[in-house]
Write a protein that binds this DNA or RNA. Structure first.
Lengths: 363, 363
DNA sequence: AAAGACCATTCAAACGTTTGAATCACAATA
DNA sequence: TATTGTGATTCAAACGTTTGAATGGTCTTT
């Protein structure tokens, strides 16, 4: 009979089985400093017993007593966004090396879930909180509780330093500029731009960068070729939006030789829209994305894009939160941190030199 | 001064602040049956105090005392596989309605991590375990501990009923047949097949289904047009593999008008390989995928594929594990369950009728 | 007026750990 | 011999909850 009555194997079980006291067993199995004083034979015996019974220390009891959970909450606004995964990987490796565990929650773009999980993370005594979100609800009052309970927090994907929250995100302004620069280096002058949706914090700085680079390269942006994605939560809506806007720009009658899309999914939508109208990418029209997510890499043509160093961003977030947890002693000491990661231009097959010949592509 | 010395707000704090005993406060805040006996005024007062202090009950202490964690471990073999996300969503919604929380871990295809997290889930007293894995390591001895601790387990993505583990997966045989049937319905007779890698359990039944459907439609499969993916862990290796094999099949000199790829990523690789060689999809050659993941939907041409009802599978896994948790009383009572979900043919733009004219496409 | 019934609240033990302090046996020192 | 030291082990309290049993009340009921 492996387990006594119902539940798990406990320290008491191991103690009984090995003939030593609970204390000794605990000291041995948790490798406390005192375990140096325990006779080698005892150590071995206890360990063997524990192994045989399949003992696993109860993390809850341990956390309760040790007053530390070794846990960092990770709250993703939408895990299905391919953008999240590399960040999570970065976080995971950052935490792992410090023996911390990420507690991952997926809010699925729903505010109710977001608040509920925030609550849960507080209840589970996450020692710190990493929020992955380009969109986030305005001042969920739960955040006040996070403060009240003195839990450090950092957000990846948007700048909330203005509200005193440490933030780490890509330098959208630089990224936008990089994208525009690339297109103009290829000789494009008539460039359609699809801006991000209103609610999204990335939209504006990216647009600023685009304008700056356009100015610097002497390109003028035709306002009639500037579009905007609708503000929908679903990440696939970018694809739909790109598709629809591509049709619109063709229908508008304005000519253009390149499209600078807000993100990769949008770019893929644009490719779809153009292709269906008989416009070839990149021969007739170049298309740029932003983010460098998986679908952009495996599509044909592969999408030229601006890479966000997501992994590194996640890693840095982990490091920062661990640091903040260490020094938590002084409540409001450290000022909130802002990291702007450097974007990188990734040239693939969806962009090409402007064809001077037969360039008049769209109607 | 919101919090007393350092940690979180506790029941004792609320008790002190409200002037009632810890018991009363607990009864009120946890809405225990006894709370009906508590004076309405008291209830309100206690609640207000708790809210004001930002009290959140300590989940660890609660689990310890209640001897139930309301937690199900979800161990994904590789979260970056787009295949996982919809399953997780299904699991999440299934658990949510029962007030259970998924504890998500990502093994990143590494055995060390897999075992480590399995351990962690045991330590955190997950009441049940859902493993998402098409690949899984042979008999990790941790699974013995799972048994020993009497934790119900179910695996999504492969059939382990032979080892007494409940399993839920797509009917690969039917799916393979569906795919082959679709191609032959379109008139294709010379069909190249890319089988899954050796180590992967899906590979064989899918191949069986393909053969059966080929037989039934009177198509003979040329062994020289049957390829196999190498056994690599990285999910993107499917893409690389498809790319390379497409080149190989063109170089082989055998003619073919369709490619049935093992999964969507492989299919996308094939599209890339063919396109780069000047073969048009689907005009010159049709390509089929399997899984219906995001990249297949947003690529152009979009990939015809066999959809796995991932969401439903996740949901079912959640329901099953919850059931198993309920009846856990009798240790080895229930026989292990096997669910084979029905695959669905999704026709998109990567497959088309065989062109009888100028069909001689490849070399 | 005594017994019971009920309401509102509190006591105290328990969940499984960890750990500072205590115990005990025994050898070494003064 | 009495003291000190030390090596091996155990005591007991604490972490923050929950909950069966107990406590005092107040109000009926006979």
């Amino acid at each position: 009979m492996p387990q006594k009555k119902s539940g798990h194997v406990t320290l008491t079980d191991v103690a009984r089985a090995s003939g030593f006291s609970v204390s000794t067993v605990s000291i041995v199995l948790s490798e406390a400093p005192l375990s140096q004083n325990v006779a080698a034979a005892t150590r071995e015996h206890v360990r063997a017993m524990a192994r045989q019974l399949g003992y696993h220390p109860d993390a809850h009891a341990r956390s309760l007593r040790r007053r530390s959970t070794q846990t960092i909450g990770v709250l993703a606004f939408d895990l299905s966004d391919p953008f999240c995964i590399p960040i999570m990987r970065g976080i995971q490796s950052g935490l792992h090396s410090a023996d911390y565990l990420p507690l991952v929650m997926d809010a699925q773009t729903q505010r109710k879930l977001f608040d509920g999980y925030l609550n849960l993370l507080l209840e589970r005594r996450a020692e710190g909180l990493i929020v992955i979100a380009s969109w986030v609800f305005e001042e969920t009052n739960l955040l006040a509780d996070v403060r009240k309970n003195n839990v450090p927090i950092i957000i990846v994907g948007r700048d909330l330093t203005s509200r005193g929250i440490s933030s780490i995100l890509v330098d959208n302004e630089a990224g936008g500029a990089l994208a525009m620069q690339h297109l103009s280096d290829l000789g494009h002058r008539k460039i359609a731009v699809i801006r991000g949706p209103q609610g999204m914090s990335d939209s504006e700085p990216r647009w600023q960068g685009i304008q700056r680079a356009a100015d610097q390269s002497g390109t003028t942006l035709d306002p009639r070729l500037v579009f905007e994605l609708p503000a929908l939560a679903d990440p696939e809506s970018g694809f739909e939006g790109g598709c629809r806007l591509a049709r619109e720009m063709l229908a508008s009658g304005r000519s253009f030789s390149a499209v600078l899309a807000f993100d990769d999914l949008t770019a893929l939508g644009v490719v779809r829209g153009l292709t269906e109208a008989g416009v070839r990418v990149p021969e007739d029209c170049s298309v740029m994305g932003f983010d460098d997510v998986l679908p952009a890499r495996v599509a044909t043509p592969s999408i030229s894009t601006i890479r966000q160093p997501l992994n590194e961003m996640g890693l840095k977030a982990a490091e920062h939160i661990l640091h903040a947890v260490k020094v938590k002693t002084s409540p409001t000491s450290e000022p909130s941190l802002l990291v702007k990661a450097s974007p990188e231009l990734i040239v693939r097959s969806s962009t090409a030199l402007r064809q001077s010949k037969k360039k008049g592509k769209a109607s």
